[in-house]
């Protein structure tokens, strides 16, 4: 373990060697080797075809849609997920425990069921979708033709918001539960109003958790397939997501093409996640205690 220690700051806390070693072993076996197989297979298309694929308007369109819709869904979840976590931790209201328990359900429901349930609701003849049609009570807000949710990119955002909803809530919640009330008291005693206390004392403490939640929600949404295909409409160039392109390539028995699109998504996700994690590490050093 001397090698491991060379890049590590000394600490009195034991167990780094075994914990780090196991982490690397497990990660290698479950994630890195399989992903290496993916990249190896994708390399089979050759550089020229990879370039054609990467510049094909249909592929870039699908990638833009997938990442754009995922970004929107993750952003929605950051705002509302924080709010939900705050309300669940700080306030009491009838049914709070039940609401709290239901937060994980978007993961438990098979994605197809989620997609079907959401389509049932947001289709033009559904409970929510019918509110926004031209003849619905809220339709006039969106001009003459009303607002179409299912079978448009908007529907994709709805589905992705649903499937990634638990992340922000569940990463912020435990940290919020740990935030020291005494500090808020101290801030208040020193004359800060409530808004100042929350933005300057509470928020900085949970920013890393919020960023983690955002990153995870984004990552999950980008790869999502099962729920989206029911609500998306799947029209090429309009509402076709990148994972659908992968499935289409597979249907053509074109493993190399499928893995190439997957590798492209993986690369973009990897860079995005790395950037978010670096920002998070930086914000922790800047605002939190330098771990």
């Amino acid at each position: 373990m001397t090698q491991a220690l060379a890049f590590k700051r000394p600490s009195v806390i034991p167990g780094f060697g075994i914990a780090f070693g196991f982490t690397l072993f497990y990660l290698g076996a479950i994630v890195l080797i399989p992903l290496a197989a993916l990249i190896l297979r994708a390399a089979g298309v050759g550089f020229a075809e990879f370039l054609t694929l990467a510049t094909d308007p249909r592929v870039t369109g699908a990638l833009k849609l997938s990442f754009g819709a995922s970004f929107a869904a993750a952003a929605i979840n950051v705002v509302f997920g924080f709010l939900v976590a705050w309300v669940l931790v700080r306030y009491d209201f009838p049914g709070r425990r039940l609401v709290d328990a239901a937060i994980d359900l978007p993961f438990a429901l098979p994605t197809a069921v989620a997609g079907i349930a959401l389509t049932t609701l947001y289709a033009p003849n559904g409970w929510i979708g019918s509110l926004f049609t031209a003849s619905g009570p809220l339709g006039f807000l969106f001009g003459e033709s009303g607002l179409k949710i299912a079978y448009t990119p908007l529907g994709i955002v709805v589905a992705l918001t649903f499937v990634s909803l638990p992340f922000v809530v569940r990463t912020v919640q435990p940290v919020l539960e740990e935030v020291d009330i005494e500090l808020e008291q101290a801030a208040a005693t020193l004359g800060a109003n409530r808004w100042q206390t929350i933005t300057r004392v509470v928020l900085p403490a949970i920013v890393p958790a919020l960023l983690t939640g955002f990153a995870l929600a984004l990552a999950r949404a980008v790869g999502e397939y099962g729920s989206v295909i029911f609500i998306a409409g799947n029209i090429p160039y309009v509402s076709e997501i990148a994972p659908l392109l992968i499935v289409i390539r597979l249907e053509e028995f074109n493993y190399a093409g499928a893995t190439a699109v997957a590798a492209m998504m993986l690369g973009i996700s990897f860079i995005m996640l790395l950037v978010i994690n670096l920002i998070q590490a930086w914000s922790r050093r800047r605002f939190g205690h330098g771990a």
Binding site: I116, Y151, I229, F230, G233, N234, I235, P236, L244, V247
Partner: peptide, 14 residues
């Protein structure tokens, strides 16, 4: 003229 292009036959039926 196709507004929704489902991935499977039964998806279209639904």
């Amino acid at each position: 003229h196709v507004p929704v292009l489902d991935t499977g036959a039964r998806g279209s039926t639904t």
